[in-house]
Design a binder for these strands. Sequence first.
DNA 1: GCAACACTTGAACGCTTATTCATATATTCA
DNA 2: TGAATATATGAATAAGCGTTCAAGTGTTGC
Lengths: 134, 134
Amino acid sequence: MNKRSSVAPLFPGACATPIVDAGRVASVSRALPSGETTRDLAQIFGLLADPGRLRLLAALLEGGEMCVCDLAAATGQSVSSASHALRLLRMHRVVKVRRSGRMAYHSLADSHVRMLLDLAVAHLGHDADGRDDG
Amino acid sequence: MNKRSSVAPLFPGACATPIVDAGRVASVSRALPSGETTRDLAQIFGLLADPGRLRLLAALLEGGEMCVCDLAAATGQSVSSASHALRLLRMHRVVKVRRSGRMAYHSLADSHVRMLLDLAVAHLGHDADGRDDG
DNA sequence: GCAACACTTGAACGCTTATTCATATATTCA
DNA sequence: TGAATATATGAATAAGCGTTCAAGTGTTGC
């Protein structure tokens, strides 16, 4: 159990972070997902944090199943870029591939992605104005 | 040395990407969100693509409203890191701040974030095993 | 076999981004 | 006023990431 018992540093070099509400900190700290889970989560969001990959996913959302060269053309990037991006997405089971001869037909493998995209769009909607600190 | 010159440049500067299903490419291409929208979307997902910020958001999800030093302690990062991260999140209206004296109490400003996090967790759930492609 | 083809991959370069350290601002209390 | 506190910020180093180029794999058809 990793609860920090006190506010003050107990010895020189100890964590010097002052804590205002120790009880709250302890309970929140316990409730947080593990470091590994957090890293995995961040990785998934990282997959969606690139315009090129986002356009690929949007294209698959619309087109259903497409080959690499058509995806590259539709999303306005080089075949190499698209291939690199699709590899990443495949590795994380976000898209799947059906191979036929020398063609590779990609499609969405994960229904959550659709919802993630929709939610993000909704966020954009009510975030359209100002963006500075206050 | 470059043997790919035969890839059919019909004229110098022409798009060299071969297209299999031109009709599909055209319709998908039209349906895609604009480049600006895609960039904004990617930026939002980018905010969630960092373990530190993700832990901050999870802490706020759990703790409701917390000051910077408690957030730093609960999420296991330096106050400076937390402050930098919170600034980013504030700038994008993902968290909001209530200032009282020298304290800054942060809380979630956006209900979509909650759903985004839940969806991502769900994805993790059914993706728990193998994660390599080959 | 040979060549065109669809896609993949590795390496390199440049850009973005996170973290840390030091310092700054603003508020409270003695 | 001055010291302590809570947070903010700038600069700098370092790590990560996307793009491109060049080359590699496996397939199709002559």
